[in-house]
Design a protein around this nucleic acid. Structure first.
Length: 597
RNA sequence: GCCUCGGUAGCUCAGUUGGAUAGAGCAACUGCCUUCUAAGCAGUAGGUCAUGGGUUCGAAUCCCGUCCGGGGUACCA
């Protein structure tokens, strides 16, 4: 039981003893005491005034007296403006540190074979273009939320649904066939996903030119868009693909492989991975079967043009198309198929989709449709809906070339990390491999922390010029603090200092040290809240404030220079424990920490 | 039009679910390296929490209206 819970339960007792009424422990409000007021924690007494029928000051005093005499950890209290501020004993805080220091899994709840199985879908790229900044946010959020789910006592399966079929894929294929001149990643040296993306852009260029030409010859915009030779050819290719035309399939397999090879590199660089990858080309037919079954069972209806629709007006939604008039699948169709396959493959207790908030409506519909089709997990699916990444000029548009490419961005950040490190010159003696590793750790730490520290639900702005910062509230600042602690620990080891994790409760610790232990004790709650609210930002902000406080302590107190051996030992244990929490917290964000930087 | 999410310092973001004098970072200015890593620490300045009402002991937070912005409302994904 932590101090919060102890105080809450004792307040319940106190209210019962003093005023003869029963209240719920959860209703007791406890908060951190303001920095400018003396005290460690504060009980808000205003809600009890109705019960006590006394002034805030008097009520607070009576409750304070009760806590002081009934809770060992409460040394004293003071009442300010009707708030009851408690002073917690130093001995209590020392035992809190001791517990945390002796628990390698502090703050984490490991899963066992009986724990729930959670599947997280993230990334979900199209195979017609390389990954960009928007995908980065998705991947980082998906990976991190997976780690947080694991840390909260769940088993995890990370999955990816690859959008490998459809008209957009055929556009790249057609452009390559027509204007590709036999180019391959091998003979051009261009990364496969980029090469395919180039042809996607090339397609659009020709397509637009054709449209203007047709419009100049008198066609309306709509007619021109439908009749342009390129789009006609791409559509034809899609039909051939669905008919399994050997030549088209061969082309499709070749170009998709280029993309997969490219993605593998990007994923590896980003540090994300998957336990199971699904391909839309394998799932869309399953979805189609399910829709036809639903049609037969009268859940859906068919229009005169043969298209199939679901009427969801009774659920407060609109009518939704499930199969086109030519019988081909739409996005929704394949999501139904993918869901079915997944639940056949795994015993999933909870399904989480990491997909942008532009698809909120889509998932609302999917949930209802799955439910109608008789899948009892349909209603329980969770759409982890995150905001868009905007650039200073506005939204990213891949066809207009205003995207921030994932590979380019990472390479650029590694370069900045390298230059900064070289300037500071603290990595002497490192091998080339160690240097490269450290630059990458810092660069990705900066990028990941930048994207994960903001509330996932909100849109965020990425300014390429300003966002690559290594000072202040950034990943490198946190990594730096870790490296500092590691440096001290190494020095202690080198000079033969023995550290014992058995601490003396009578130790006289400073205000700042007590603050630090209090911050440490908040880690488990941060992990839980991050899990409950699906928010890596909670973890990021927690680590930042912990580390900020540590740096203040580090500045004002000498660790190795401390003459009193018991205090020196205490400070080493404190520092080491903070380093551990920083490391496991950063791990929940998918960020590594360096030994030196 | 309808649905939905948002608006907090010049900029980027927090704000513990209704609590005390709204906090960080960046940018600007000022100090601190002969001492465990200055990617650090300390300080100055910067606010009508979009706006008008309401609810109560108490509102950035809850409710209603208005203004501004994002997204959705496709036989695109």
């Amino acid at each position: 039981m932590n101090i919060d819970q102890i105080i809450k339960s004792k307040i319940v007792e106190a209210v019962q003893a003093l005023y003869g009424q029963t209240i719920q422990a959860d209703s007791v409000q406890i908060q951190n005491t303001r920095k400018d007021v003396e005290g460690d924690m504060t009980v808000v007494v205003f809600p009890f005034l109705r019960i006590s029928r006394k002034s805030p000051e008097q009520t607070a005093t009576e409750l304070g007296e009760y806590l002081k005499s009934h809770v060992g950890a409460v040394d004293d209290f003071l009442v300010v403006k009707g708030f009851l501020n408690l002073l917690i004993s130093k001995a209590y805080w020392v035992t809190v540190l001791e517990d945390a220091a002796n628990n390698q899994e502090f703050g984490l709840t490991p899963a066992n074979e009986n724990s729930p199985l959670v599947m997280v879908e993230y990334s979900s790229p199209n195979t017609n273009k390389p990954l960009h900044l928007g995908h980065i946010r998705n991947n980082l959020l998906g990976y991190s939320i997976g780690e947080i789910i694991k840390a909260n006592g769940n088993n995890l399966v990370k999955t990816n649904i690859v959008n490998d079929r459809g008209i957009h894929i055929c556009k790249s294929m057609y452009a390559w066939q027509k204007w590709g001149e036999g180019k391959t990643p091998e003979n051009t040296g261009v990364k496969g996903d980029h090469l395919v993306g180039d042809f996607y852009v090339l397609f659009d260029k020709h397509y637009k030119a054709e449209i203007s030409e047709l419009m100049a010859s008198g066609l309306s915009k709509e007619e021109a868009e439908q009749q342009a030779p390129s789009i006609v050819a791409a559509r034809e290719m899609l039909l051939k693909w669905e008919a399994r035309d050997p030549e088209v399939i061969k082309l499709w397999e070749m170009m998709n492989q280029w993309v997969y090879d490219g993605f593998d590199i990007t994923y590896k660089e980003l540090g994300v991975d998957f336990d199971k990858i699904y391909y839309e080309s394998d799932t869309y037919l399953v979805g189609k079967e399910e829709v036809l079954r639903g049609l037969k069972e009268g859940l859906f209806h068919q229009r005169e043009d043969q298209s199939v629709w679901a009427d969801l007006t009774a659920d407060g939604l609109d009518e939704k198309i499930l199969l086109r008039s030519d019988g081909t699948s739409v996005y929704m169709t394949q999501d139904i198929g993918t869901a079915k396959l997944r639940f056949n493959d795994y015993k999933i207790d909870k399904m989480i989709y990491v997909v942008g908030n532009e698809q909120n409506y889509h998932f609302q519909v999917l949930s209802v449709l799955l439910d109608k089709l008789g899948f009892d997990w349909g209603k329980g699916l969770h759409h982890f809906s995150y905001g868009m990444v905007e650039l200073p000029h506005g939204k990213m548009k891949s066809r207009e070339g205003t995207v921030v490419d994932a590979d380019d961005l990472m390479a650029e950040m590694v370069d900045v990390a390298r230059r900064t490190s070289e300037e500071l010159g603290k990595l002497e003696g490192y091998s080339d491999d160690e240097l490269a590793e450290t630059y990458k750790t810092i660069a990705l730490g900066a990028l990941k922390y930048f994207m994960l520290k903001v509330d996932p639900k909100k849109n965020m702005l990425f300014n390429p010029e300003e966002s690559i910062d290594f000072n202040g509230n950034t990943g490198p600042f946190i990594q730096y603090t870790y490296a500092r602690i590691r440096s001290v620990i190494r020095k202690a080891e080198a000079s033969g200092i023995q550290v014992t994790k058995k601490l003396d409760v009578a130790l006289s610790i400073s205000e700042k040290e007590q603050e630090l232990i209090k911050s440490l004790s908040l880690f488990p709650a941060a992990v839980k809240e991050a899990g409950d609210t699906y928010s890596p930002a909670i973890i990021a902000n927690y680590i930042y404030s912990l580390v900020k406080e540590f740096n203040q302590f580090y500045h004002d107190h000498s660790i190795l220079g401390e003459q009193d051996e018991a205090i020196r030992n205490f400070r080493l244990v404190l520092s080491q424990t903070i380093a551990n929490v920083v490391k496991s917290g950063m791990n929940l964000l998918g960020i590594r920490v360096p030994e030196r930087m």
